[in-house]
């Protein structure tokens, strides 16, 4: 008798599973897929999402980086390289100025430590997450724009 019971209980348990998959098959509303490139326009990324390091520039092509290299020190794996030069100000003081802010996207772990350590909020992460490029060297980026200067308050 347990032989037949065995068969019946097995069938019931299997039918239960089939009921579940059947439910999802017949309820297309449950589909969770989001079609990514098609939904680019409606895609909403959380504001805190960290995708790529950027250096915001204002309308006069000025950034806020004083070249203090705090971010370079804070980075756990050498993603950032800050090249500076010394400039003599009109009142004859020597000041450090940013020359090139190199950011190697290929090494970045998006840990946000650089942004945290920056004393003047010069860098921040944006939401541009499509990183794919055709050449590896394209992943090494210079964040400060051509001919940009530092803002007046940091001068």
């Amino acid at each position: 008798m347990s032989y037949i019971e065995n068969i019946l209980s097995t069938s019931v348990s299997l039918l239960k599973g089939m009921k579940m998959t059947g439910y999802y098959f017949s309820h297309p509303k449950e589909i969770y897929t989001r079609q990514y490139p098609e939904n680019r326009k409606t895609l909403k990324l959380p504001e805190r999402f960290r995708a790529e390091l950027t250096m915001p520039h204002d309308e006069f092509n000025r950034h806020r980086c004083s070249g203090c290299t705090a971010c370079e020190i804070a980075c756990p794996n050498g993603t950032i390289k800050v090249l500076t030069y010394m400039e003599t100000t009109p009142d004859n003081k020597k000041k450090k100025r940013l020359d090139t802010f190199i950011y190697r996207l290929s090494m970045c772990t998006f840990c946000n430590l650089c942004v945290d350590s920056c004393p003047s909020d010069a860098i921040k992460f944006n939401q541009h997450f499509e990183h794919s490029v055709t050449e590896r060297k394209q992943l090494t980026k210079v964040l400060n724009r051509q001919g940009s200067t530092v803002t007046d308050e940091l001068k």
Binding site: P46, F49, T109, F110, L113, F125
Partner: peptide, 24 residues
């Protein structure tokens, strides 16, 4: 997680002294 910590997998959110930022 993404909304609060900014990343989906590698968080770097719970840090010595507390948490990096308040929750969303």
């Amino acid at each position: 997680f993404e909304e609060t910590c900014g990343t989906r997998l590698t968080m770097n959110y719970i840090i010595p002294g507390g948490v990096a930022t308040d929750v969303h």
